[in-house]
């Protein structure tokens, strides 16, 4: 992009095994979002290697990157990023559309995941007819729809109140219990404590990486 380049990540080395629930913490500017974007192939690292499910991710052109994102990754954003003129159902079905799944199957799958996040009755509502928590649940259903290897969540609770945050975390824990690998970027300690492993970043390097005792969100709900 601009002519001034900024080195955000300065040597990160870590592995995530299948089925882990990892939170990446750090103050703003620590590079946690950049790390997530590199992992999500939304951004490219200048140096280093990245292997996802034994596939080396390098020399991507946009077409291949799009294909990998579609197959391997599901994104959950802080601001939900639902397409506001599409119903909840259509939003969830969108990754499947890009996979080339036919209409009938798409609707079935999308309904299944909407049901899983408890929003089946809202399937035909537009995003602006839903509450913040509901929107994030639609976004989670969308991330799950293409059955990805890894879920990447960038401050998934950042725009939600505490109660709704806990509901969403409960959902995420449930998905992790089913065996999905999930990475969460957050700066809230109570959210991080609901994961199984906390990676702390500061100024582009990992300062500590600990497995923690998971706090179940269900006890707050």
């Amino acid at each position: 992009m601009g002519s001034n380049s900024l080195h955000v990540l300065k040597g990160i080395n870590f592995n995530v095994k299948e089925g882990e629930l990892v939170s990446i913490m750090g103050s703003s500017g620590s590079g946690k979002s950049t790390l997530l974007n590199v992992l999500g192939m939304l951004d490219e690292a200048d140096k280093g290697s990245y292997t996802l499910d034994n596939v080396p991710i390098k020399n991507l052109n946009e077409k291949i990157a799009a294909n990998y994102r579609n197959k391997f990754l599901g994104f959950i954003f802080q601001s939900f990023n639902l397409i506001n003129y599409k119903s909840a159902l259509d939003n969830v079905a969108l990754p499947l559309y890009y996979q080339g799944v036919n209409r009938k199957e798409r609707v079935e799958k999308a309904m299944y995941y909407l049901d899983k996040v408890g929003l089946a009755p809202w399937s035909h509502h537009l995003p602006n007819e839903l509450s913040g928590g509901q929107k994030q649940r639609v976004a989670i259903a969308r991330a799950l729809a293409s059955d990805p290897k890894v879920l990447l969540a960038d401050e998934p609770t950042g725009a939600l109140d505490t109660k709704t945050s806990h509901e969403v975390m409960d959902l995420i824990q449930g998905i992790n219990d089913d065996g999905k690998t999930i990475l969460i970027v957050t700066h809230e300690l109570d959210i991080a404590n609901m994961t199984k492993r906390i990676v702390n970043l500061k100024d582009g390097v990992i300062i500590d990486d600990n497995f923690v005792e998971q706090v179940r969100a269900s006890q707050y709900v």
Binding site: K63, A66, R69, N70, N81, L94, Y98, Q99
Partner: peptide, 8 residues
């Protein structure tokens, strides 16, 4: 968003 979801 569409590209993140896998639109080429």
């Amino acid at each position: 968003v569409r590209r993140a979801l896998g639109a080429a």
